[in-house]
Amino acid sequence: MEILKVEFLKLRKKTRIWLGPILVFWLIMIAYPLTVELLQDKLQIGFFSVLWIAILISMMLATEDIFTEDYNDGSLEQTIIQESSFSTNIGLKVFIYWFLTGIPVSILSFIFSFGTTQNFGLSLSIFPLALISSYIFLNLFVLGNSLSLNKGSVLGAIVTMPIALPVLIVLGKSITALQFDINFEGFILLLLGSLSIIIVLVPIVVSYIIRAHLE
């Protein structure tokens, strides 16, 4: 649990790391209505697509600096030398980043969808979807960013975006399921299932990748 303390200490000073993605999400959600003529029903047509893509992009930005700084100043080496499990550390670190970006973004998605659809039940169901999907995206982009560690986050994004596409498809489908009220829980379970696999696998793979970087 030391890692939690350490990360919070660092992120307390690095507000841009977690505030930036939230603000970008916010700005995209504000930018969307501006591109549409302001009629409520027109707004709703593309709203959820923009919402999922905004979550995707904000999570991409959130991982931008997750290992780079530690790699450049040598902290990663110190962490590897310590005997404690490296992959668990990575998992916890991802969790902290999700806690600071994913949860606020999910709350914002709830607020924005309520504002757009005026449908409380629907917007409330968006909340868990956003929570789970943001965690999945975050994990995937962490993987991408670990690959392109000190080469900028664009490369990592290019490389992992294809992996994130199936999640977008599931999200799109689940909105349809919500609107026609068919088997929405199934989609939540599907996402949860994939999340539980990703949560275990990504830190392990990332730990190998980072070791390869330090070699």
Binding site: I169, G172, A212
Partner: peptide, 24 residues
């Protein structure tokens, strides 16, 4: 090494992508 890891991760994902796109 990095490329090999990425290829393997991608290989795991190709069937998933295909299935989900079919489904879509």
């Amino acid at each position: 090494k990095l490329l090999s890891w990425l290829v393997i991760v991608g290989a795991v994902n190709i069937p998933i992508i295909k299935k989900s796109v079919d489904w879509w």
